[in-house]
Design a protein around this nucleic acid. Structure first.
Ligand code: MN
Ligand code: MN
Ligand code: ZN
Ligand code: ZN
Lengths: 140, 140
DNA sequence: TATTAAATCTGTAATGATTACAAATATGAA
DNA sequence: TTCATATTTGTAATCATTACAGATTTAATA
């Protein structure tokens, strides 16, 4: 999958988001790092390439992007929010040993069918995840 | 469901947890408040009845209890941990308007069947939740 | 009962992620 | 250029949680 800056620029413009340099950088980072990174991880790499980058800008940008539905916030560790450029509803696996978060492909009826309510509550998002020990940590 | 102190005392002793007064209070609170409360909520009520109660003790107790599998930590808001005395795997609904967390009864294959792995990762816990607008907030 | 070591509880300080805020900078129209 | 607006930046504040050390309780032993 090729995701150059021009692609990302179009993506933002179509969603009504002004494609500033900082926003393009964050988007590019997310496209290239599909490991559900933290703000810290994003900032640490971007500030190397763009020394003026502020951590507050990373926070602001991610809040904007998630509000517009361009990125997803993943809150399964309880200690920090992690970010996902993949906005299609999918499930995750959190390793209790190494802390990595993986995408997993499980077929849950609620993810595939478009349910609109449960127990009278209006559903807008569906989240599912597993916790345990990841493949890598099992074999080492 | 009647859950008096004697019941709770037995429950803790069976799990090898010394049933101190503070621990019994936390357990009793959780049994009587099935709304997935925060540490703050638990502490605020307990300190009224037990003026010497420390918030640190609430934290310590909940960490002990969740480590022993007596209570469940729910990390779906991203801002604070919420606690559940119901340790059977079940799903939740978080209302984006009022912040309440409800239990929901959905039949997901992964909750009922006992899968041990997914994509090579060893599964220890299964979590699922929805976000949206709750029944109460819809009709008001 | 008195002694005493271990466990538990408590209050305060520290940590770490996130947000608030105001000044600096960039953008873009007139 | 001028000026208003949007964006970015750095710092301070907030808030949940954890670390830690002293106080208290527990329970075993003499
Ligand atoms: Mn993902
Ligand atoms: Mn529950
Ligand atoms: Zn792992
Ligand atoms: Zn609600």
């Amino acid at each position: 999958m090729i995701t150059n800056m021009k692609h990302i620029k179009n993506e933002l413009e179509q969603k009504g988001i002004k494609p500033t340099y900082q926003r393009l950088c964050v988007m590019e980072y997310l496209h290239e790092h599909l490991v559900h990174p933290t703000v810290e991880m994003i900032y640490d790499e971007l500030v190397d390439r763009v020394p003026t980058m502020s951590k507050t800008t990373v926070y602001n940008t991610l809040k904007l992007l998630s509000g517009k539905g361009v990125v997803n916030e993943i809150t399964i560790t309880g200690t920090e929010v992690r970010y996902d450029i993949n906005c299609q509803s999918h499930h995750h696996f959190l390793c209790k040993k190494c802390g990595k978060i993986y995408d997993v492909d499980v077929t849950c009826p609620f993810v595939n069918m478009d349910h609109k309510e449960v127990s009278g509550h209006e559903i807008q998002e569906i989240h599912g995840y597993f916790k345990g020990v990841c493949k890598g940590c099992l074999t080492s």
